[in-house]
Design a protein around this nucleic acid. Structure first.
Length: 567
RNA sequence: UGCCUGAUAGUGUAAUUGGCAACACGUCUGACUCUGAAUCAGAAGAGUUUAGGUUCGACCCCUAAUCAGGCAACCA
C-alpha cells in the first residue's frame, strides 16, 4: 500500500538517456570531482533554429538536472563569417527559452593568446610545423578516405625556422593563404582529420571582438577542446558529424593537460523535422531568395520564427524533452511539435470569437435596433479564469464554411431548415439565404428562439452544431495570416537531384484582410496568444496596431471534420 | 577499396544490464460536450535488419552479412 503512494508521488521516473548514463557513471566514479559542466557553443554566423534548441535544452537541462553549470560560448574563430548581430540574437534566443548561462558569455576569441602560446609549445616539442604550400597542394597530399596521404616537404624543418615563421605569420608579414601551421600527427592515419590538420591560417580580417589584433586564427579543432578545458567543461556535447574529430579533440587535450581533470566529447544525433529544412545554408537561401520574409518569418524553423509565430518557450522545451537524445538518425514528425504547442496553448489561452471568412447572417425575428450582452467564459480549461460579455444583435457574421446550401447529412452546421446554437447565445434556424451575382452566399436569414439563451438551462440535445459568431456593428476588422508548413514534401532536402525550393508549399501563407474579431482583441499586444474559438490558436504579430490588428495562426485546432471529409 | 557510427510498431524514445518488448505522438472505435477542440474509455499495430553461434533462456553477448549516415574547408 505504502508503495503505491510513493510511486504516485515520485512522478514518472523515466529511464536515463545514454548521456545521462555516462554522466551518472562519471559522478559515481568521482571523475572531475563529480562536477557536471556543459556548454552551448554556437558560431555567431547565423540565427539559431529548433535543432539548436534541442542542443540548448540538452546542455542547460543536464546542468540543471545534475546541479551543474552550463556556459554559453561563442565559437568565433572565423572572423570572415561572424558578426555581433548574431551574437545578440543568440543571447536573446537562449534567454527566451528560459535558460541562464553561468557568469558572462564566453568567447573562443578570449583564448587566442593562450592558444597561441600552446601552439608555440607544440612547435618547440616538434609537434607542429609551418607549411608553405598552397591550399590545393596540401589538399592533394592529404589523400582520400581510402588512400593515405603523403608528407609535406616542409614537415621536417627545424624548430627555430618554424618558430620564426610562425612568429612572422602572427606579425602579418605574409599574405592570406600563403602559410599555415599544421600539427605533426600522421599522414597515413585512416582518419582524415589526423593527417597533419591545419591549426592556424592567415586571415587578414577584422574580428568582431579582437579587431585587427590578429593576423592568424585558430581552426575549430585546435580551439574547441582547449576552450572546454579552460572553462572546466566536463561533458562536451556535439552532433554526430564531429565523431571523427574526437581523436583530434583528445590529441589536442593530451598536449596541454597537466592534471587529472579532462573534458570529454560526446556526440548525439541532430534533430530533423519533417516538412522543413534545418541547415543554416538552406535557411539562408530561403531568406536571401525572398522565399520567406526574413529570419523571423513565422514559417521558419528558426527560434526567432517560432517565437514570432507564437510558439511558447514551454512548448519548445517540452518538445526537446519528449524527442529524447540518441545516436541514431531521426526524423521527428512536425505533428508532434504541433501536438505539444496545442497542449500548452490549450491550458493558457483565452477563448475568443473571430470570424476568418465572414458571411452576413440576419435574425429576422430579432427586434430592430436592439442589442444585448451575452456572457462567455474566457477559458473553460482554467477554473480561475474570468468571463466577459459580448454584444449580440440582429445582424451577425458567421464563418462562411459553417453554412452550406446543400449540406450532406453528417454536416451538423447550418443549412436551409437546419438548427444550430450560436455559442453563448441562442439556437437559430435557417429560413432562407441570398446569393450574389457570382452565386456565392451573401446573406443568411434565420429565426432565433428567445427561450434558448445560454445560461438559462434549457437543454436542446438534438442541436449538434455550435457556431462562433460576431455581432456586425461591434465587430472589428482584422488581418489574419494563416500559416501552413513551408514545404509539401516530407523531406525537402532529401532529394539528391532536386532543390528543396522545388517543394515549397504555395499555400504556406494565406493573408486574409477582411476577418472580423471581437472588439477587445483589437488592443492585443504583440505576442499575446488566444484561441479563436473552433479555429485555432493565434498570436498578435509585430505588425499589429490598434487600427490594423494582425494575427498569426500558430496552429489550427485538431480538425476531425476536415479529416473525415477528405476520406 | 578504407575508417567511424548506427539499425526496436507509421514516427520518436524505452526495456532497471540475459528473464518472451513499454511509453508518447499518429491511426481506429466509443462516451461526453454550448469549440466536430479538450477530456475520458478502449482497440489495432513490432517479435527487435538478416544468418549463424553462446545460453535453460538473447533486443541485449560473439561472428558474419545487409542497409543507412558520417569522413578528403586554410568552415564550424
Amino acid at each position: 500500500m505504502s508503495n503505491t503512494t510513493e510511486d504516485v508521488a515520485g512522478a514518472e521516473k523515466r529511464s536515463l538517456n545514454f548521456i545521462e548514463t555516462i554522466i551518472e557513471e562519471d559522478i559515481q566514479n568521482h571523475k572531475n570531482d563529480a562536477r557536471v559542466h556543459t556548454r552551448f557553443p554556437p558560431e555567431p554566423n547565423g540565427y539559431l533554429h529548433i535543432g539548436h534548441a534541442k542542443s540548448i535544452c540538452l546542455n542547460f537541462g543536464l546542468a540543471e538536472k545534475y546541479n551543474g553549470k552550463c556556459n554559453l560560448r561563442f565559437d568565433d574563430t572565423n572572423p570572415e563569417k561572424e558578426e555581433t548581430e548574431y551574437v545578440d540574437s543568440i543571447m536573446e534566443d537562449v534567454k527566451w527559452l528560459g535558460f541562464q548561462w553561468d557568469k558572462e558569455p564566453y568567447y573562443a576569441s578570449d583564448y587566442f593568446d593562450q592558444l597561441y602560446s600552446w601552439a608555440v609549445k607544440l612547435i618547440r616539442d616538434g609537434k607542429a610545423y609551418v607549411d608553405d604550400q598552397p591550399q590545393e597542394t596540401i589538399s592533394q597530399q592529404r589523400g582520400t578516405p581510402t588512400r593515405p596521404g603523403t608528407e609535406s616537404p616542409f614537415r621536417n624543418r627545424t624548430i627555430d625556422e618554424n618558430l620564426d615563421l610562425f612568429d612572422r605569420m602572427k606579425a602579418g608579414e605574409f599574405a592570406n593563404g600563403t602559410r599555415v601551421l599544421r600539427a605533426k600527427i600522421d599522414m597515413t592515419s585512416p582518419n582524415m582529420h589526423m593527417r597533419d590538420p591545419v591549426m592556424y591560417r592567415i586571415l587578414n580580417a577584422e574580428h568582431h571582438r579582437t579587431g585587427g589584433k590578429w593576423k592568424i586564427y585558430p581552426m575549430y579543432d585546435y580551439a574547441h577542446g582547449q576552450s572546454d578545458y579552460l572553462e572546466g567543461i566536463t561533458h562536451s556535447l556535439c552532433t554526430l558529424e564531429f565523431e571523427v574529430h574526437r581523436p583530434l579533440y583528445d590529441w589536442c587535450l593530451d598536449q596541454i593537460i597537466e592534471t587529472t581533470y579532462r573534458p570529454r566529447q560526446i556526440e548525439f544525433a541532430r534533430l530533423n523535422l519533417s516538412y522543413t529544412v534545418m541547415s543554416k545554408r538552406k535557411l539562408l537561401e530561403l531568406v536571401k531568395g525572398n522565399y520567406v520574409n526574413g529570419w523571423d518569418d513565422p514559417r521558419m524553423p528558426t527560434i526567432a520564427g517560432l517565437r514570432r509565430r507564437g510558439f511558447t518557450p514551454a512548448s519548445i522545451r517540452s518538445f526537446a524533452d519528449r524527442i529524447g537524445v540518441a545516436k541514431r538518425d531521426n526524423v521527428i514528425d512536425v505533428g508532434l511539435l504541433e501536438f505539444i504547442v496545442r497542449e500548452d496553448l490549450n491550458k493558457i489561452t483565452p477563448r475568443m470569437m473571430a470570424v476568418i471568412d465572414p458571411v452576413r447572417l440576419m435574425i429576422t425575428n430579432y427586434p430592430e435596433n436592439q442589442t444585448e450582452e451575452v456572457e462567455l467564459v474566457n477559458n473553460p480549461e482554467d477554473p480561475e479564469s474570468a468571463s466577459r460579455t459580448l454584444l449580440f444583435g440582429k445582424e451577425l457574421f458567421i464563418e462562411r464554411d459553417d453554412f452550406m446550401v446543400d449540406p450532406p447529412k453528417k454536416f451538423f452546421r447550418l443549412g436551409p431548415d437546419r438548427e444550430v446554437r450560436l455559442k453563448g447565445a441562442y439556437v437559430i434556424k435557417c429560413e432562407n439565404y441570398d446569393l450574389d451575382a457570382q452565386g456565392n452566399v451573401s446573406t443568411i436569414y434565420c429565426t432565433y428562439d428567445p427561450d434558448t439563451k445560454s445560461g438559462t438551462g434549457i437543454h436542446q440535445p438534438k442541436i449538434k452544431g455550435t457556431l462562433h459568431w460576431l455581432e456586425a456593428s461591434s465587430a472589428v476588422n482584422a488581418e489574419v495570416r494563416l500559416y501552413d508548413r513551408l514545404f509539401v514534401d516530407e523531406d525537402p532536402a532529401g532529394h539528391a537531384d532536386k532543390d528543396p525550393i522545388e517543394f515549397l508549399n504555395p499555400d504556406s501563407l494565406k493573408i486574409v484582410t477582411n476577418s472580423m474579431i471581437e472588439p477587445m482583441l483589437a488592443s492585443a499586444k504583440t505576442g499575446d496568444k488566444f484561441q479563436f474559438q473552433r479555429i485555432g490558436y493565434f498570436c498578435a504579430d509585430n505588425d499589429s496596431t490598434t487600427e490594423n490588428p494582425v494575427f498569426n495562426r500558430i496552429v489550427s485546432l485538431k480538425d476531425n471534420w476536415t479529416k473525415e471529409n477528405q476520406k
